[in-house]
Every structure is written in structure tokens, then in C-alpha cells.
Design a protein around this nucleic acid. Sequence first.
DNA 1: TAGATTGTTAATCGATTAACAATC
DNA 2: TAGATTGTTAATCGATTAACAATC
Lengths: 225, 225
Amino acid sequence: MERVISIPKPTLERLPLYYRRLLQWREEKVSIVSSADIGKNLGIDSAQVRRDLTYFGAVGRPGIGYKVEELISYLGELLGINNVNEAIIVGVGNLGRAICSYPGFAPYGLSIVAFFDIDPQIVGTKIRGHEVFHVNDLIHIVKRLKIQIGIITVPAREAQKVADQMVAGGIRAIWNFAPTRLHVPEEVIIRSEDLAVGLATLSHYLVREDLSERAEGLDRGISGS
Amino acid sequence: MERVISIPKPTLERLPLYYRRLLQWREEKVSIVSSADIGKNLGIDSAQVRRDLTYFGAVGRPGIGYKVEELISYLGELLGINNVNEAIIVGVGNLGRAICSYPGFAPYGLSIVAFFDIDPQIVGTKIRGHEVFHVNDLIHIVKRLKIQIGIITVPAREAQKVADQMVAGGIRAIWNFAPTRLHVPEEVIIRSEDLAVGLATLSHYLVREDLSERAEGLDRGISGS
DNA sequence: TAGATTGTTAATCGATTAACAATC
DNA sequence: TAGATTGTTAATCGATTAACAATC
């Protein structure tokens, strides 16, 4: 399955961070950076940075560093950013709207070309100049426009149904914001952004800290620090 | 630093998934589940599930499985869900509003008790019955209410300033949705939800697939499958 | 040349999985 | 008891970090 060169997932999640920081450096007219610069800035080991950047072949110069411009287009290529990524979004409540107008996407060439909802109050209205279609038209429209990316921002209980229709329309990657697990054919890529996971882990750390305060008190005599 | 019992991060991100699925089972009147049930449902190895569930001591019965009810309260405790988590949110654009009304949080006891913004058009209005305050009042209000969690949904360039004020007010955990890295004292917990990372990885996989199609063609003679 | 920094190899660290004795 | 499933140990796998020769 995982054929050809395959990048470790953690690396893949760091590349966009490098990319974004590089855009900022370009803005600031910085033309060359070292792996140490990048690492210090993002809190990542410099060896890790070099490692990450060489998965598809080298791009830096020993003794010099990385040309910001070069690295940007290299990473852009790698991340598929240089392409235009056309997507549809299903569910135009607050979350859907927030995603449509999320400024962080600006550099990533995401273009949301059609909006869908099921609420008759919303279907037929316009969002950012685009008409909102009924979900029933999804398969048809997706096929016609050959859309590859589908974004799901509907309630959890609707999500699977929507995913099924996306798959039927030929969508190859689903970005799911509904708090539920989706079942799709294995050739379809799924990425779920599960906000509850974020909240729960944060909340867990708070609890942990409370517990560990006592423990640290007992501990201090032994381990110092 | 990482004192007392410490759970691996990947485990910590799976616990909320278990928790959510268990709530669903309870709803369906299922009273006992096995690690195999949980695993199959979430696409996780059953040994992994057992491992994850024993980091704070055992809860299952050999030969039987796990009592849904017991496991729910066990995980709830672990994740700090049984507490009420009071939070403030800064930035009440679409994303802020989406988070406030995100249904996935329902089980997690998150209570957003104050809203802040800087836009004079918005300050003073009400959201879900709560007045929106000016960011200038943040430190004062956070101190008075002894809030521990701050949610940042402002544009990237404002985020650090907001984080500084949260820290000054005594907030201990920050949930950051702005696409930028925040610098805070090390005792403050930060979790960043970086949507651009999600988008970029998704887009990357699409590109990879396109490339690998060719490669697979060449490959097939050798490795079959 | 001397100093800096890469790309890469080897060593370390941490997480996942397999296997199985203990237990219901 | 026989069958099922846990909790845990040991083996495997994968990612991070340290170290350094090669290169500018």
C-alpha cells in the first residue's frame, strides 16, 4: 500500500509549520536560514529539521544553509500547495463559515467552489458570492466539477451519509470536522479534526497538574530540581 | 518535569475517542464491552486499547471485559471531564462562535463564561446570553473569576498579545486556533489546533497518490499485490 | 584556509504489537 | 470445567537525537 517514498506522519505535520515560517521570513526579506534557525523558531531539534527536509532529496548547502525562496517552492511542491485545491463544503453553519473564511488557508491554494446544506432556510442563499446547494445535488455537482476534496461540517449523525455521497461523487479526500468516525473505502483519504480530543487533552493536563502538585511536594526532597 | 505517572501523548489522544464511543454504547444500553469491541470500532489494535486503559491501573475483568458505566466514569475522571471547565474565549468571529456552539463538547463540561473581542461593533453585544467584553478587561475578569482555560480565535498577528494577557490574568491552559506559534512561560499549557496543518497534509496525500500511480504501474511486475 | 552547516549514519528513545499466564 | 478476555512482559517497529564526514 504505502508505496514509493513515504514520509513519516510526524514529519508531514511539521512541514506546513516550516512552510508558514518561511513565508514570514520571505516577507521579512530574509534570504537564507539554517536548520538551527528554523528549529529554534519552532521549538524543534535542528537535526530533526534537516531530517525532515531531506525526505525527498537534499535542498540545502553545507556551510551555508537553506535559501528561503528555494525551500518555499520545494515545500510548496511537496505539500501540493502550488496546485489549486478545489473543494466543496457540506454544512454551512458557524463552523463551515469559519472554515471558508479561515485566513490561515490563504497560502495553501484551497478553493471552496461549492457549498451544500440541507436546511431549506439556507439552501438557495448565497455565501461569499456562491449559491448554497441542496445536499441532494452533491453527487451530480461533484462529478461534473471533478472535485477531489470534501469538507464535512455537519452534525455527527449526518456525517456518514454525507461521506457516502462524497465517495459516490468521486471525492478522494475528506476533511471531517464532525465528531465521529467515518467509514469509507480505503483508497479515500480521511483526516478528522476532532476538537473534542483537543479539549479533553487540555483538560487532562490541568487535572494532572493539580494532582502532581502534591506529588512534587513529597518528591522534592529526593530529586531536587 | 514530567513528574508522577505520565501518559504517552498518543494514548492521551485516543482516550477521548474511547470515551465518546462509550457514551454511545451507554445510550444503546450496552453494559459490557471488550477491548476487541472498542478496537474494532475505532480502528485500533485491541492490545493497544488494553494498554491505554491501564496506565492508571486496571479497570477490566479478565474473561469478561469492561463495564461501560465504570469505564466512562474512570475515563471521565482521567480526562478531567467530571469537573466543570470554565473558559473564556477571545475573538468572536465565525470560528469563535462555531466553537461556542460546537456540539461535540457537550459531554466535556466545558463552560465558556466570558467572551472578548476588540471590535467596537461587537463589544457590548450579547452572544448566547453573555455580554461580549473588550479585551482590555480581560486580565481583570479572568482574575476575578479565576478562569483556568483561555481559547484564542483571533487573527494570527493578535494572538501573542492575547496570550500574554491571558497569562497575566493567571490562565493555565491556552487552546490556540490562530495559525501561529505562541510563546508562554513553561508552566502554561498550550494546545494549538492548526487547521493549515490538516489541510496541507490532506493535500499532500492527494499529490502523493497522483505520483504513486505512475510508480505503481512500474512497480506491479515486481511486487504484485 | 578556517568556520559553518549540511546530509546521513548509528545510537537512543518511545510507542505499538504479539504472546501468554492469570483470572473470571 | 471450558472459553473468553484481561493485564503485562518481551519483541518489534518507527521516530528522534547525537555525532561527524563531506562540503561550501
